[in-house]
Write a protein that binds this DNA or RNA. Structure first.
Length: 808
RNA sequence: GCCGGAGUGGCGGAACUGGCAGUCGCGAUGGAUUCAAAAUCCAUUGCCCUCACGGGCGUGUGGGUUCGAGUCCCACCUCCGGCACCA
């Protein structure tokens, strides 16, 4: 019996598929486990970095299945979007053709790894069967006022020739192509995610099986702040504007006010003002400056409007400035500036010679500039002497009483910009009629079919706009000539609900059957990259809440547990095609097989951490699997036909210890140590076999080993399971339980320390009492040498593990 | 700047709750087997002193708490990630 890797792996891949072992239906009698990984973009070849993630997902599918769960593990394709489109532009192949060529290749590669899914539920977002429901979802949001179109300054990527959501702008650069993003005023579609800001924030508290890191990132992104909106009147005019502040307690220190250059009041303020020319020049310059330049901290610029505002707290006049360090997109686009307690205002005031009044007493010896800490309020009339919290509450109450302002809550989160001027995405199902304006496409006319066109290159407007046959349509209201919306949806719309569609993927009548979703949701384990911490995971939570409010989904949160895996690193960079450092699994498949690759991917390090690829690591796990094969098939040591003896009992006990450790470690996602425990046991078994082991013990411990190994190295385990006659299909066997009596040790090593330093080890009974432990320790010859001539001050006993003797 | 996370042998990493630092693997060294090699097996492998028994040092740095600290606390250094003129 030699280990014919290629043949065995192909055999079991066929059998899992042919016997539909991992295809599932709703079964109320069994507990369910819904295991989902973030569906991939079908990019072509899988490299070792991808395989790491698939190995984790597949391990969980198989493990939970053996534990008796009804496990749903589906797979689909995030097949719309820029990568396919850009690849298509580069190669001249149509994105549809390109995509539909890649999908079967990817499937074949997953199969080669031995990864199993319920392929009956496969979906791909570029297919009309899928995007029809994207469009349906859009119309539902539109109906509820959660989708709207407006002209707004948006992030424009000059390379990809499309707008980007705020979440897709990283440090002022395009998330995809790294080009510098510019601002443009455009009519764009938005989803009103801000309506859900508070709920998205509050419900993070329920997600205790999410990494704290991700929850913190979402919290920061939502950016809730509590403060106060105050109305400032402009002297000698009937104009007024609102400012938002989180520090109303410092209002007496306001020595100027600032408007963002885009603020709507700016025009009426500067027109005819003494400073008009200068102000106009400044606004023009600020408007053309890139985001990056405007974000340069420290170097603050601005221009005086020529007008003064009234500080509502004390009636003082303060100059109104325009400065681009105030952003139109946050708060009211205008601020009260308090240089004494805000460093930005301090910088500005110092530069332009504006007065600075401290309203919080800095501590003794404070030598900084603006003081942002706590302390007693000063120079502030009736607030004097109060601490920050009290002063805030008092002044907000005072403003409210006098009708000058009110306590308000502000979020950093903005509405989600979902329209894209690109070809390869779901068409937005709206029509513009000269008579009836914006009209939604009736749901019975869905899908708005995404047409195949010749020229899909980006051109500053959607390529669909060039297709006469697509654009020209009838108004759903009057039947007159009308034009279709030509923008497509952000692919994050597709991915914000696909996990619901998996529950009922072939439904042609509705987006899904709520009863089926009810059975499978929530996702019990969601697995993906941490790069989606705010984008996809926030959008998916939002859409789930919308569907919940529509009564279609019971739960308010889609993903009960989230696992974010680390990346595979090679030559100091994430393994990726664009970095040119990918390692293809092909050579490793033919030399070592899928099991050795999988086991190495699990063994390489903690799953949450980045791991460094090593070329000969697979060799190690391959050696281990070879050894398991040889030991299982009787090619190592002596297997004796006799009743089990004492040595057998110890091997059996070790096997049960392995069962316990491996199970507990899988449960806490410590896959690398699970593998280590299997290897440790294999070493024990090998030594035991050298001495000779009974047939009975050998068979039992091999049985346990194969059960544990099967989610990690399924092909080899299945083959041995069958060959040794344990049964036909290991995947459907029950996960082993350990026997506590066997796991328990009778004799343990007790460490004896003198002043905290290890001085002796004594074998003692596991149930030793404190008194015996102490006298054994003190009686040890070695210990005597260390305490002779010293005064024993204290003996700490933690039986049966440790005795520490303190001498002076 | 703010908010997270990490720093342990030649390398990847282990030590989950304060209790033997270095499981497991890679690499390396010596040996067995072999005509030879591959494969396999055995042994050694944190650093320093010692023929040895044994001892000293050791988890980024400095301090602290504790009978006892990789683990807890304080300060700092370095690296990684997120946010960043958010009022």
């Amino acid at each position: 019996m030699t280990y014919e890797i290629q043949q065995i792996e192909a055999k079991w891949q066929d059998r899992w598929e042919d016997e539909r072992v991992f295809n599932v239906t709703e079964d109320p009698k069994r507990p369910k486990f819904y295991n989902v990984q973030m569906y991939p973009y079908p990019s072509g070849d899988l490299h070792m970095g991808h395989l790491r993630n698939y190995s984790y997902v597949d391990l969980l599918t198989r493990y939970r299945r053996m534990q008796g769960y009804n496990v749903l593990s589906p797979m689909g394709w995030d097949s719309f979007g820029l990568p396919a489109e850009n690849a298509a532009i580069a190669t001249g192949i149509h994105p549809r053709e390109f995509t539909e060529r890649q999908i079967p290749r990817m499937k074949a590669q997953l199969r080669r790894l031995g990864a199993v899914y319920d392929w009956d539920r496969e979906l791909a977002s570029h297919t009309p069967e899928y995007y029809k429901w994207d469009q349906w979802l859009f119309l539902e949001l539109y109906k509820q006022g959660l989708a709207y179109k407006r002209n707004a300054p948006v992030n424009w990527c000059p390379t990809d020739q499309t707008v980007l959501a705020n979440e897709q702008v990283i440090d002022g650069h395009c998330e995809r192509c790294d080009s510098e993003v510019v601002k443009r005023d455009l009519d764009q579609w938005f989803f009103k995610i801000t309506d859900y800001a508070q709920r998205l924030l509050d419900d993070l508290d329920q997600l205790d099986a999410w990494p704290d890191r991700v929850r913190t990132m979402q919290r920061n992104w939502i950016g809730r702040s509590e403060g106060c909106t105050i109305t400032l009147e402009v002297r000698e005019t009937d104009l007024a504007f609102d400012v938002y502040t989180t520090r109303p307690d410092t209002v007496f220190g306001m020595t100027f006010a600032v408007l963002a250059p885009e603020h709507p009041l700016v025009e009426s303020l500067i027109s005819g003002s003494v400073n008009e020319a200068e102000a106009r020049a400044y606004i023009t310059a600020a408007g053309s400056a890139s985001e990056i330049d405007r974000q340069a901290e420290g170097d603050k610029t601005g221009v005086f409007t020529g007008h003064y505002a009234v500080n509502p707290a004390n009636g003082r006049s303060v100059p109104i400035w325009i400065a681009d360090y105030v952003l139109m997109g946050y708060g009211t686009g205008a601020i009260m500036a308090v240089p004494g307690e805000d460093q930005r205002d301090w910088d500005f005031a110092t530069k332009y010679g504006i007065e600075i009044i401290r309203t919080v007493e800095p501590p003794e010896g404070f030598d900084g500039e603006a003081y942002t800490g706590t302390g007693p309020v000063i120079n502030s009339d009736f607030l004097n002497g109060m601490e920050m919290a009290e002063a805030k509450a008092t002044i907000i109450a005072w403003f409210e009483e006098h009708g000058l302002g009110r306590g308000t809550v502000n979020f950093r989160l903005r509405d989600w910009l979902i329209s894209r001027q690109r070809y390869w995405g779901s068409p937005i199902p709206m029509v513009t009629c000269p008579t009836h304006g914006l009209v939604p496409v009736p749901t019975d006319q869905l899908p708005v079919v995404h047409p195949d066109i010749e020229d899909y290159r980006p051109a500053g407007r959607s390529p669909l706009a060039a297709s006469e046959s697509f654009v020209n349509t009838e108004c759903p209201v009057c039947g007159g000539p009308a034009k279709r919306e030509t923008d497509t949806m952000d692919t994050f719309v597709d991915s914000s609900w696909y996990f619901l569609r998996y529950c009922d993927a072939q439904n042609t009548e509705e987006i899904f059957d709520p009863a089926k979703v009810d059975y499978w949701m929530d996702v019990d384990q969601y697995i993906g990259g941490v790069e989606h911490a705010v984008l996809h995971l926030l959008y998916a939570r939002f859409i789930t809440k919308v569907l919940h409010d529509m009564g279609l989904v019971r739960s308010e949160e889609p993903f009960k547990a989230l696992f974010t895996q680390g990346m595979l690193v090679k030559d100091g960079a994430k393994m990726s095609k664009s970095k040119g450092n990918v390692v293809s699994p092909d050579a490793y498949y033919s030399k070592y097989g899928a099991d050795a690759i999988r086991l190495f991917e699990l063994f390489i390090g903690p799953p949450t951490d980045d791991a460094v690829w090593s070329d000969n690591g697979v060799e190690g796990t391959s050696r281990f699997l070879d050894r398991v094969w040889r030991m299982a098939t009787g090619q190592v040591g002596q297997i004796e036909d006799r009743p089990p003896g004492e040595a057998d009992a110890e091997v059996l006990a070790e096997a049960h210890r392995m069962v316990k450790k491996v199970t507990e470690d899988i449960d806490r996602f410590s896959f690398n140590t699970s593998v280590a425990h299997l290897m440790t046991f294999a070493n024990t078994l090998q030594s035991a076999l050298r001495e000779g082991l009974s047939t009975e013990t050998h068979r039992e411990v091999i049985r346990l080993l194969l059960l544990l190994l099967s989610p990690m190295a399924p092909h080899l385990s299945h083959e041995l399971w069958e060959q040794l006659g344990f049964g036909t299909m290991l995947a459907t066997e029950e996960w082993p339980a350990w026997d506590d009596d066997l796991v328990k040790r009778d004799v343990v090593t007790m460490v004896v320390q003198v002043n905290g330093k290890l001085r002796d080890k004594i074998e003692v009974a596991a149930d030793i009492d404190a008194e015996t432990a102490e006298s054994l320790a003190l009686g040890s010859e070695r210990i005597q040498d260390w305490i002779d001539g010293h005064n024993v001050k204290k003996v700490i006993v933690r039986e049966p593990n440790i005795v520490n003797i303190v001498v002076g």
